[in-house]
Design a protein around this nucleic acid. Structure first.
Length: 289
DNA sequence: AAAGCTATCAACCGCTCAAAG
DNA sequence: ACTTTGAGCGGTTGATAGCTT
């Protein structure tokens, strides 16, 4: 069908005649050269203008996850490791949010690292990687060797012990083109200020109502005058939003020294085992503002 | 040495949301 | 108010390197 007459949403790209699979060095060079000259954005039309036979989405992904000059290469450090676990316990699978607090790391990298290393590590420590609660049952036995496909099929059959919580849509973290990646805008309920906790009753369709401790916070960036905030709770997917406030976080998190600084702070909190969990949570919240 | 299996991670897919028209 | 488009996100897949039998 002719593009001009296409009803509904057009696919991100026509699959016909486009390259798929691993990128070649030549394609990388073309993309890098083009973005260096013209900047990011306009992903849909970029491939054509850059002389690439790729879909725009693929170009964006390649740039974001691999070619950007500020990508940090090498192994995830134990410090990053701990931060990821902590952030995940508060934010769940919000990889882009987590990645935003780890300079040079991409959401895809963190997601992969979580799935291959950290979830396993937590399980071995007797912690459910989904809920971060202690596992009551013994760790799952290895049931012999299986091919990947079989493994994946098993995943489909097994119903994970996941508490489904139906809440208003999660916040959308919107990257501003004028800001570095680690700076974000948030939507949030701006009716209240400061960090707080509360207990909410949540009901999933067809399920019993469940009481959940909500932890949320609203911070303020005095220097920039930008109100910032976010809701999140003990359980995953408790990010809530009802109105929109745009905020610019300071650039304190963008340099490499910052991670160490933040982590030191975090370690201080961890040293005192008696510290209530809320305090650690507040720390993680502070990373978000 | 070969076959089988596992772990890893780049890339893809499908979806949602916001902005523009 | 509605449609279309662009961008971004999280989940999943599949190629392959490396390990084990």
């Amino acid at each position: 069908m002719l593009a001009g007459f296409q009803m509904g949403r057009a696919p991100c790209c026509s699959k016909v005649g486009l390259h798929r699979g691993p990128w070649t060095p030549r394609e990388d060079a073309l993309l890098t050269k083009y973005i260096q000259a013209h900047g990011e954005g306009q992903w849909r039309s970029l491939p054509k203008r850059a002389g690439l036979l790729r879909c725009g989405k693929s170009c964006r992904l390649r740039w974001m996850n691999y070619l950007r000059p500020d990508i940090k290469r090498g192994n995830i450090t134990p410090e990053e490791d701990d931060l990821i676990i902590r952030m995940h316990s508060l934010l769940g699978n919000r990889w882009s949010l987590i990645a935003g607090r780890l300079p040079g790391r991409t959401d895809n990298e963190i997601k992969n690292y979580w799935n291959t290393h950290l979830s396993k590590k937590l399980r071995n420590q007797g912690t459910d990687p989904k809920t971060h609660h202690k596992l009551t049952a013994a760790p799952e036995k290895k049931k012999g060797k299986k091919k990947n496909k079989q493994k994946n099929e098993n995943k489909k059959v097994l119903t994970p012990e996941k508490t489904l919580v139906y809440l208003p849509k999660a916040i959308r973290v919107k990257a501003l083109s004028c800001l570095p990646r680690t700076e974000s805008t948030f939507t949030l309920d701006s009716n209240s200020g400061s960090a707080s906790t509360s207990q909410e009753k949540i009901q999933s369709p067809g399920e019993e109502a469940k009481e959940v401790n909500m932890v949320w916070g609203v911070g303020n960036d005095g220097d920039n005058g930008g109100g910032v905030g976010i809701f999140f709770g003990e359980e995953h997917d408790l990010v809530n939003s009802s109105s929109y406030v745009e905020c610019h976080s300071d650039d304190v998190h963008t340099d490499h020294g910052t991670l160490e600084k933040l982590y030191e702070e975090y370690l201080q909190l961890l040293k005192d085992e008696e510290k209530p969990a809320d305090e650690l949570d507040s720390f993680a919240q502070s990373l978000l503002v």
